[in-house]
């Protein structure tokens, strides 16, 4: 019992990270209909930036945090301007390969800037772990889950309640119609990118203290983020969030109770099951095209 609670704690913690990654991906998809295969690299950038700014340069944590997020946003902006917007034929397959290229590129840059060795980052607060029902709950976990909820809530509020956010959704539904009503659809695309990559960086910042950070950490995290987004239903924010938590918990339970070797496979088995059984995702009514 105690073990299971412990697995649950760690599952929810990693799940929250997946949730943040999935929310970023999902948000970008719902406003630009694009899947960014380089998303995991922005998570990596966030983690590496906090290593440099907080650990090495010893800046105060809030400042380092803001710096890392700003870096994520700026790189996202650059990426959108230089690589996505310039594409001659923006077909999905072409865009996917461009983002794959970007992911390799960013990993290469990170390898030169930070080297190949992994870094560790201390926990954000130096409190002792809390004991609940015999299982230890790390303060970092609370940080992570809190941040994930805040971030998803913020993006939800932005998309549903603010004019800019609504305009962004309108662009995704019908770009031309949105443009005709006077929405600057191009600016919306950039904004969506910046918010999405910024949220990726946030995920990276929070994951840094609970794992080792290195230049190649992004790919797997990005892929797991996809799985989470798909499980919840592509384009649905809370679906992505729930998908992330679910994935984290199942992974942690699977690794603990069955075999740690199969941990990585769980995400993908889940993904296939979802695609075969309800391709629209668990939490979305929209049906995927299966024609």
């Amino acid at each position: 019992m105690q073990e299971i609670i412990q697995y649950l704690f760690s599952g929810i913690t990693t799940g929250a990270i997946y949730a943040v990654i999935a929310v970023g991906l999902s948000m970008l998809y719902s406003s630009t209909e694009l899947i960014n295969f380089a998303h995991g690299e922005f998570v990596m950038l966030g983690a590496m930036a906090i290593v440099t700014l907080w650990v090495h340069m010893a800046l105060p944590l809030p400042l380092a945090f803001a710096g890392a997020v700003a870096l994520g946003c700026c790189m996202g902006l650059l990426f959108e301007r230089l690589a996505i917007r310039t594409a001659r034929t923006p077909q999905p397959i072409v865009l996917v390969i461009i983002t794959v290229g970007a992911s390799i590129f960013l990993r290469g840059v990170a390898m030169i800037v930070w080297g190949k060795d992994p870094f560790s980052v201390p926990a954000f607060s130096r409190h002792d772990s809390i004991e609940i029902a015999g299982a230890a709950l790390l303060p970092q976990s609370i940080w992570i889950v809190g941040a994930a909820v805040l971030l998803a809530g913020g993006i939800h509020f932005f998309l549903k309640k603010t004019l800019t956010g609504k305009a962004m959704v309108a662009c995704a539904v019908n770009k031309k119609a949105a443009w005709l009503t006077g929405i600057p659809s191009e600016k919306m695309g950039i904004l969506a990118f910046a918010v999405s990559t910024g949220s990726g960086a946030v995920a990276g910042i929070f994951i840094a203290p609970i794992t080792m950070s290195s230049y190649d950490m992004g790919t797997m995290l990005g892929l797991k983020g996809f799985c989470a987004a798909m499980i919840g239903g592509l384009g649905s924010l809370w679906g992505a969030f729930a998908g992330g938590i679910l994935l984290g918990v199942l992974e942690s339970l699977g690794a603990g109770l069955i075999s740690s070797g199969l941990k990585d496979a769980i995400a993908f088995i889940l993904l296939l099951l979802i695609l075969y059984i309800c391709p629209g995702g668990l939490f979305s009514a929209k049906e995927a095209k299966r024609f």
Binding site: A87, G108, V109
Partner: peptide, 21 residues
């Protein structure tokens, strides 16, 4: 050596951006 990944990624992007066929 070190720049292999950067160059590879760049080539991929540039070809896809300018010559998608």
């Amino acid at each position: 050596a070190e720049y292999e990944m950067i160059i590879f990624g760049l080539i991929l992007m540039v070809v896809m951006i300018f010559m998608p066929q």
